[in-house]
């Protein structure tokens, strides 16, 4: 099984500091293509920080310093010649709080393809907006109100709009930072179902505090603890027979 598995991202000995504080102590991890990888762990364990390293969102924090390798299809995304703008079209991100732009639904989806010059306005853009919204399973709900503000949608719809906006630039990897933490169970189920569909075309990495969610949606699970990657493995293995005691304690609810 491992032999036919394609590795999309390969992380080797990645260390991260905020000023003098070492937040990640040398992470080694493979993210497999067209699979869902979940990051779990208690608050402050570095899982979100690590996720943000994967499309260099941490660049915005001045005190943040990184060592080690973060390879996307073999090339280091922290190499000096890498254009972070281009990188983010390959590695998209969906955030904890649904954050559509206060613009129309159409503009939300069309924005990124336009600024990257992927598609010119007109019929091509209309088509791209439609396919993106369809892929994000929200087309049927919004097709009659594309010119209405995205902020007028419900929370779950907003989050799917944000996913549509992210996949409009055809990324390879979609990073999701607790995408359902602000949503009700029905909206959450819709997003989870959507992730199941999306993983046919995209590699998905999700950070979640909801262990059941990690168990439901992911193929692989990584358990982070105090800036270390404690355990990484197939989700069913992590949730039935984890090898590390710390993982075991966390998963079974022994939070001493």
């Amino acid at each position: 099984m491992d032999t036919e598995m394609q590795t999309k991202m390969k992380i080797r000995d990645l260390k991260l500091w905020y000023g003098d504080f070492e937040a990640l102590h040398g992470i080694n991890l493979d993210v497999y293509s067209d699979k869902v990888t979940a990051f779990i762990g208690p608050s402050g364990c570095g899982k979100s920080t690590f996720l943000r390293c994967m499309n260099r969102m941490n660049d915005r924090i001045a005190s943040c310093r990184i060592e080690g390798q973060m390879l996307l299809e073999g090339s280091d995304i922290y190499a000096p010649e890498v254009d972070v703008v281009q990188l983010r079209t390959h590695v998209g991100m969906v955030f904890q709080k649904p954050n559509p732009f206060p613009k129309s639904i159409y503009e939300n989806v069309a924005y990124a393809p336009r600024i990257h010059g992927l598609v010119t306005d007109g019929p091509d853009m209309d088509e791209l907006v439609e396919t993106s919204l369809k892929k994000a399973s929200i087309w049927n709900e919004v097709k009659d109100k594309l010119q209405q503000p995205g902020t007028a949608l419900s929370g779950g719809q907003q989050q799917r709009l944000c996913i549509a906006r992210t996949i409009a630039v055809q990324p390879d990897v979609i990073l999701m930072d607790e995408p359902c933490s602000a949503l009700d169970p029905i909206a959450t189920a819709k997003i989870e179902e959507l992730m199941d569909e999306l993983k046919n075309d995209y590699t998905i990495v999700i950070v979640t505090h909801n262990m059941q969610q990690a168990a439901r949606v992911s193929d692989y699970t990584a358990y982070f603890y105090l800036g270390d990657l404690m355990e990484f493995g197939e989700t069913q293995q992590i949730f039935t027979a984890p090898t590390h005691q710390k993982t075991e304690d966390y998963i079974t609810g022994r939070f001493g």
């Binding site: 969102m57 955030f95 206060p102």
Partner: peptide
């Protein structure tokens, strides 16, 4: 202006100037 709007734009690959001017 909520930080989430900036994050959304940066996450889509907008440059600092685009984030400031567009959003």
């Amino acid at each position: 202006v909520p930080e989430s709007i900036r994050e959304a734009a940066f996450g889509l690959g907008a440059s600092s100037l685009q984030v400031a001017w567009h959003h």
